[in-house]
């Protein structure tokens, strides 16, 4: 990418400036500014309807009715809240869907092994459990070797135990791959657990930014973890003092 002289050469995986997206005259994203460094894990928090999913869709190139600048790497991949696997294609064909050329089954096998789904490579998507389907969706994103991985509440629909495993998996994959990640979530704990930097979105822009300098792997029992979590919850308008009593 850096060799392409027609594109601005930056040390960013994402560079957004003055971004505005309006629905029927109402600005959901309003003059937003956002930089993500290569390899950085950024979590985006916000109340529902604050525009965080819209921002992700813009970065994914799915929403182009925008004003302003949004620079993203060419190789990017999305995992949605629903796995969105094509039910008429077996898991490995889903993983390879849209890849250029005629990739071999082994390519899918490798990445499915990475997410621990090698044993379901030939299964129909509708026979997968929720957690398995979400891992297949993650594999489909990873096989593209993205420089930017966009995750749109990928754990939202999972049960509590599966979610913990899936979060751990995403953390491991990120550390191994070293790609930049933007995780959209409404789970503060998840954000503090995984991200280098947590952004809180409000009123169509980034209203608050919190660097998370805790060592990995992080434990939720760490008092500093609890403090960060409480601070972010307060930013989101949740009174943690009431919760503690």
């Amino acid at each position: 990418m850096a060799t392409d002289v027609h594109r601005p050469v930056t040390a960013h995986a994402v560079r957004v400036e003055g971004l505005t997206r309006a629905f029927d005259g109402r600005a959901v994203i309003d003059d937003l500014r956002l930089d993500i460094a290569p390899g950085e894990f950024v979590a985006l928090l916000g109340r529902s309807g604050c525009g965080k999913s819209t921002l992700l869709r813009i970065l994914a190139g799915l929403d182009r009715d925008i004003q302003g600048t949004a620079l993203v790497p060419r190789r990017r991949a999305v995992a949605f809240q629903a796995p969105r696997l094509m039910p008429w294609k077996k898991v490995w064909r889903n993983v390879l869907l849209g890849l250029p050329g005629r990739p071999e089954r082994a390519v899918a096998e490798r990445v499915l092994d990475e997410v621990g789904l090698g044993h379901r490579i030939g299964a129909w998507p509708k026979t997968l459990s929720g957690g398995e389907a979400q891992r297949a969706s993650l594999a489909r994103a990873l096989v593209r070797e993205p420089d930017l991985l966009l995750l749109d509440e990928p754990f939202g629909a999972l049960d509590a135990l599966t979610r913990i495993k899936a979060q751990r998996l995403v953390g491991e994959v990120w550390q191994r791959r070293g790609c930049a990640v933007l995780l959209v979530t409404h789970d503060v704990e998840e954000a503090v657990l995984l991200a280098d930097r947590v952004l809180v979105m409000d009123g169509g822009r980034i209203a608050h930014e919190q660097r998370i300098d805790l060592d990995r792997p992080r434990g939720i029992t760490d008092p500093r973890f609890a403090a960060l979590r409480a601070g972010l919850l307060e930013r989101l308008g949740v009174d943690t003092a009431a919760e503690a009593s």
Binding site: A60, A77, F80
Partner: peptide, 16 residues
């Protein structure tokens, strides 16, 4: 339409 969008995000062409 969610599947169509997912296909789009995977870089499928119109024919794809």
């Amino acid at each position: 339409s969610q599947l169509v969008e997912a296909g789009e995000s995977l870089g499928l062409s119109r024919w794809g």
